[in-house]
C-alpha cells in the first residue's frame, strides 16, 4: 500500500534548533567554511534531522502506533542554502505482516535524488 507523499522544507534555522535539542553541534551543520574544509558541498542537514523527518512521516501515516525499529543509511547529504530552504520528500510503502507488525519502506529524496539508503520502519499495528 502506497502512503501519501509528505513534503518538508528544511532551513538553516531548523538546523540551529535541531542542534540545540539534539546536542549535535557539529559545525558542518552551521558553518559553510568548516563544511567545505572537510570536503562537503556546503552546510548539510544533520543526517538525524532527515531521519527525524522520515519518522515524522511514519507518525503521520500511523498516528499513535508504537515504533519497534527504525533504521537508515545516510547516502547523500541534504545541502541547505543560507537563504530560503530545501525540500525533502518522503514516500512510503506499507506491508502488513502476520505478526501484527507493519514494515514501512521509505523513499526520501531531495532535488530528485535519494538522500537516505533503504530507510525502514517497523510499527506495531
Amino acid at each position: 500500500m502506497s502512503l501519501p507523499t509528505q513534503t518538508y522544507t528544511v532551513t538553516r534555522a531548523d538546523l540551529v534548533r535541531y542542534a540545540a535539542v539534539s546536542g549535535d553541534h557539529n559545525p558542518i551543520h552551521q558553518d559553510e567554511e568548516v563544511a567545505r574544509s572537510v570536503g562537503l558541498p556546503g552546510v548539510i542537514a544533520h543526517g538525524m534531522y532527515t531521519m527525524a523527518l522520515a519518522a515524522r512521516a511514519v507518525e503521520t501515516w500511523f498516528p499513535g502506533a508504537e515504533v519497534v525499529s527504525l533504521g537508515t543509511k545516510f547516502t547523500n547529504p541534504v545541502v541547505v542554502p543560507a537563504e530560503g530552504g530545501v525540500e525533502v520528500v518522503v514516500d512510503g510503502e506499507a506491508k502488513p505482516g502476520d505478526d501484527g507488525l507493519t514494515t514501512v519502506s521509505l523513499t526520501v529524496t531531495c532535488g530528485g535524488e535519494k538522500v537516505l539508503g533503504m530507510p525502514r520502519a517497523v510499527v506495531r499495528g
Binding site: S37, V38, G47, F74
Partner: peptide, 16 residues
C-alpha cells in the same frame, strides 16, 4: 567531531 559524518543509524526499541 567536524571530521565525522553519520553513515548509518538503527534503533531497536524495547518500549516507548
Amino acid at each position: 567531531l567536524a571530521r565525522i559524518v553519520h553513515g548509518e543509524q538503527r534503533f531497536a526499541y524495547e518500549r516507548p
